[in-house]
């Protein structure tokens, strides 16, 4: 069983009133082989909110998350994370975004600990060994830490991938179907993670088909349909026409 308190490192977001939108998109579109997976999405998400991205298969949820994670580039339109342009400042955006996709991105021939240790080096996580051990414990994988990931079930792999997110200093966490393959304990773990991230002001966007388990943890819901925003409800998300966020780079600590 996972621990009840998950350790999430504190973040500094500067002066609260001056925090730029966590996410802002303006007519964001992405074509694949001439077909629009995302057909012009304009959204603004306030910092510190937990937002569900809903919609049927092919609605554009994964494409939107991949664009925000800088995994792919937009075909048209613009987007900003913490005021940083996704296209122009991709390197800085990657410091601020943590993304869990359908694929776990793990190495089968390495152990769980080695996988997280590698991620910690890539993420420049302070107190690496302590944080890796803690993440393994928090995800309920402490007893399997030195087993190869190739021997893990789909649910355990998903837990380990969630543990990798705990090693980041991200201000925006993007989760694509995080409940998939998880058992009841695992789903509780995702709920605890959501609360922990919200507690330190991290913005979370979750693509899902259903929010049954997450209802009480969410601030807003955005429904996509055929690449467009069909409906927005809740607090902290707007679809109003966007004014381009001020460039925050002079005020942002860069590495």
């Amino acid at each position: 069983m996972p621990q009840t308190t998950i350790y999430v490192s504190p973040r500094s977001f500067g002066v609260p009133d001056q925090r730029p939108p966590a996410v802002a998109t303006s007519d964001l579109a992405r074509l694949f082989a001439g077909s629009a997976a995302l057909a012009g999405v304009s959204l603004t998400v306030e910092g510190g909110r937990a937002v569900a991205l809903l919609g049927p298969n092919g609605a554009g949820k994964t494409t939107l998350l991949r664009l925000l994670a800088t995994a792919i580039r937009p075909s048209f339109g613009s987007a900003w994370v913490d005021g940083l342009d996704l296209d122009r400042d991709a390197d800085l955006v990657r410091l601020r975004v943590a993304y869990l996709s359908h694929a776990t991105g793990l190495y089968d021939d390495l152990t769980a600990r080695e996988n997280l240790d590698f991620a910690a080096v890539m993420l420049d996580t302070p107190d690496r060994r302590v944080r890796v051990s803690r993440a393994l414990e928090d995800m309920g994988l402490g007893t399997r830490a030195d087993d190869r990931v190739g021997t893990f079930s789909a649910g355990m792999r998903k837990r380990l991938a969630l543990g990798r997110l705990l090693l980041t200093q991200a201000s925006l966490v993007l989760l694509d179907e995080p409940m998939a393959a998880l058992d009841d304990d695992g789903m509780t773990l995702v709920e605890q993670l959501l609360d922990a991230w919200k507690g330190v002001g991290v913005t979370v966007i979750i693509a899902a088909h259903s929010t049954d388990r997450l209802e009480t943890h969410l601030d807003a819901r955005v429904v996509l349909d055929r690449g467009l925003v069909a409906e927005v409800s809740g607090e902290g998300v707007t679809t109003a026409p966007l004014t381009v966020p001020a460039d925050p780079r002079p005020a942002v600590a860069t590495r």
């Binding site: 994670a69 800088t70 995994a71 390197d91 990657r94 410091l95 975004v97 993304y99 996709s101 694929a103 991105g105 991620a119 890539m122 993420l123 420049d124 590495r255």
Partner: peptide
């Protein structure tokens, strides 16, 4: 894809 997303 995961490797490409690391801030390095």
């Amino acid at each position: 894809d995961q490797l490409a997303l690391y801030p390095v």
